[in-house]
Design a protein around this nucleic acid. Structure first.
Ligand SMILES: NC(=O)c1ccc[n+]([C@@H]2O[C@H](COP(=O)([O-])OP(=O)(O)OC[C@H]3O[C@@H](n4cnc5c(N)ncnc54)[C@H](O)[C@@H]3O)[C@@H](O)[C@H]2O)c1
Ligand SMILES: NC(=O)c1ccc[n+]([C@@H]2O[C@H](COP(=O)([O-])OP(=O)(O)OC[C@H]3O[C@@H](n4cnc5c(N)ncnc54)[C@H](O)[C@@H]3O)[C@@H](O)[C@H]2O)c1
Lengths: 222, 222
DNA sequence: CCGCTATCGAGAAACTTATATCGAGAAAAA
DNA sequence: TTTTTCTCGATATAAGTTTCTCGATAGCGG
C-alpha cells in the first residue's frame, strides 16, 4: 500500500477542523504568529485537550509555552481536509439551492470549484448562472469523464435524487454531496456526504420546543 | 416545574429523527400502515436497535411482530421535533443563501415559516423575494417583539454575523439558525444552531483525498 | 392448537469520544 | 540564575453512544 499521509480520524474531529481553520485564518490576518489550543478552545467553549487532539490529526506539532505556528497550522489543516487544491465539481439541479451554491464565492477556499451546472428543465438549459453554463443532463457522463470530475453536487428534489446519483456514479464521479432529503444508495468505493439542513433545523426546533414548554407561556395551549 | 413532554435525547438521535420522518412520510403515502425498525434500519444501513432506541425518544410504543403504526409515529416525531406547528421566523441577509431559504417550499413541513427578510443593502430593501418583503434592519427589533418571533435565521457574511445575532437577542429572539462560518457568542437561554455546510464539505473532501491518495494516481505528486 | 419467527423493549457489553491528570520543556518574571 | 507559569503531548479516566443479548409477545403456517 502507498504511504498514508492522511490519518483516519473521527467524524467529529473532522467537523471541528474547519471551525479552527476559519478562526486561524482570521487570526493570521490580524498578524498573530502563534496560537495555543487554550486560545482556540476559548472561542468555541471546547476543552483545550480536545483541540490538541484534533490538531494532532493534521500532523502539525506545537511547542510548549508557545503553541502552534498559525500559518503552518493553517496549511496543515487545509492539506488534511483536501482544501489546498480545489476539486472541480458538477452541480445537478439549478434551482434555489443550486443557485445559492453556484453564487458562493468562498468555495475555492474550501477545496471546491463548481465548473458547470446541469438541469432537466429546458428553460434553464443554455442560460448562465454566476458565469457557469447550465447544460442538459445528457451531457453529464461524457463531460464528467473527459474533465475528470470527482465531485458531484445534488440539488434536485428528493424524488429525483437517486436517479441523478446513479448517473453520476456511471459517469465515474467518486464523491457526492447531496442536499436532497432522501436515503441514497451508492456502490462501494463511492463517497456520499449528505448536507442535511433539516437535521440542523430539527435540533433547533426541538430545543426551542423544550425551552418554550418549560416556562409554559407559548406551548401549553396545545 | 411543568410536565416535560419532550424528553432529553442525544444530538445524534435528534439528527436521525428527520431521516426517519422523511422515510415514514413516503411510506405512508404508499399506504403502508405499519413499519418495523428493521425496515427503517435497512434503508439507512443502521442498526435496528439504534432505530428502536431513537424512536423510544418520541414516546411512541410499538407492538411485537408488527412494528409501529406509520401515521401515529409520524405525528409523534413531528411533535417531538416541534414540527407540528410552524414557528414564525425572521431571516437576515437576503443574499444567495437567504434567497434559497426563502424559496424553499417545504419549510412549513419542518416547523419553519419565514415571514420576513431583512437586509442592510438599500437596493434590496423594499423588494419582495418569494412573496416576502425585504425590510430594513432597523425595523427588526420592534417587529420581532410585536409578532412574537422566536426564530432568527442568519445569512449575512461572517464578519457581520455577531452584530446581527446581538440585534436578534435584544429583539427577544430565542433561537438562532446561523449559516455564517463564525464562532458566535450568545447569552444564556438563547439557542444557537449552526448550519455549517463547510463541515459537511470537509468530511467529503477529506474522504476523497484519502481515496485518491490510496490508489496513488492524483495525489502522489505532492 | 402449537410451534416458528419477526419484532419489541430492557439491560449488558463493547466501542467511541471527551475530559482530566501529569511530566517535561520553554519562555517570562523574580 | 532560579522560580513561576503556560502549554504540549501522553496516558488514564469518565462519559456517551452504539451494538449485542435475551425474554416476552403477537401474528403466521402447519
Ligand atoms: N432551498 C432550500 O433552502 C433547501 C433547503 C434544504 C434542502 N433543500 C433540498 O435541495 C433540493 C433542491 O431544492 P430547491 O429549493 O433548490 O428546489 P428547486 O425546485 O428550486 O430546484 C430543483 C431544480 O432541480 C431541477 N431538476 C428536477 N429534477 C431534475 C432531474 N431529474 N435532473 C436534473 N435536474 C432536475 C429542476 O428543474 C430545478 O431547477 C431539494 O431536494 C430540497 O429538499 C433545499
Ligand atoms: N451561498 C452559499 O452557498 C453559502 C454556503 C455556505 C455558507 N454560506 C454563508 O452564508 C452567508 C451568506 O452567504 P451568501 O452567499 O448568501 O452571501 P451574499 O453576499 O450573497 O449575501 C449576504 C447578504 O447579507 C446582506 N448583509 C450584509 N451585511 C448585513 C448586515 N449587517 N445586516 C443585514 N444584512 C446584511 C448583504 O446585503 C447581502 O444581501 C455567509 O456567511 C456565507 O459564508 C453561504
Amino acid at each position: 500500500m502507498s504511504q498514508l499521509k492522511v490519518r483516519v480520524v473521527s467524524r467529529s474531529t473532522l467537523k471541528r477542523l474547519p471551525l479552527y481553520l476559519h478562526l486561524l485564518e482570521s487570526l493570521a490576518d490580524q498578524g498573530l504568529q502563534n496560537v495555543s489550543c487554550t486560545q482556540i478552545a476559548e472561542k468555541f467553549d471546547f476543552d483545550p485537550t480536545q483541540v490538541r487532539k484534533d490538531l494532532e490529526a493534521t500532523g502539525e506539532v506545537g511547542t510548549a509555552r508557545i503553541g502552534f505556528r498559525t500559518v503552518s497550522l493553517i496549511v496543515k489543516i487545509k492539506e488534511f481536509l483536501g482544501w489546498n487544491n480545489a476539486h472541480d465539481a458538477f452541480l445537478v439541479g439549478a434551482g434555489n439551492m443550486g443557485k445559492a451554491l453556484l453564487g458562493y464565492k468562498d468555495f475555492d477556499r474550501y477545496g471546491l470549484n463548481i465548473v458547470a451546472a446541469f438541469d432537466k428543465d429546458t428553460r434553464k438549459v443554455g442560460s448562465r448562472i454566476f458565469n457557469r453554463e447550465v447544460l442538459p443532463l445528457v451531457k453529464l457522463p461524457n463531460l464528467a469523464k473527459r474533465m475528470h470530475i470527482n465531485i458531484g453536487i445534488v440539488t434536485v428534489p428528493a424524488e429525483y435524487a437517486q436517479e441523478v446519483v446513479d448517473l453520476m456514479v456511471v459517469a465515474g464521479i467518486k464523491a457526492i454531496w447531496n442536499f436532497a432529503p432522501a436515503p441514497l444508495k451508492i456502490p462501494e468505493g463511492v463517497i456520499l456526504e449528505n448536507a442535511r439542513l433539516t437535521q440542523s433545523l430539527a435540533v433547533l426546533t426541538n430545543n426551542l420546543t423544550k425551552v418554550l414548554g418549560d416556562d409554559g407561556k407559548d406551548l401549553e395551549k396545545n
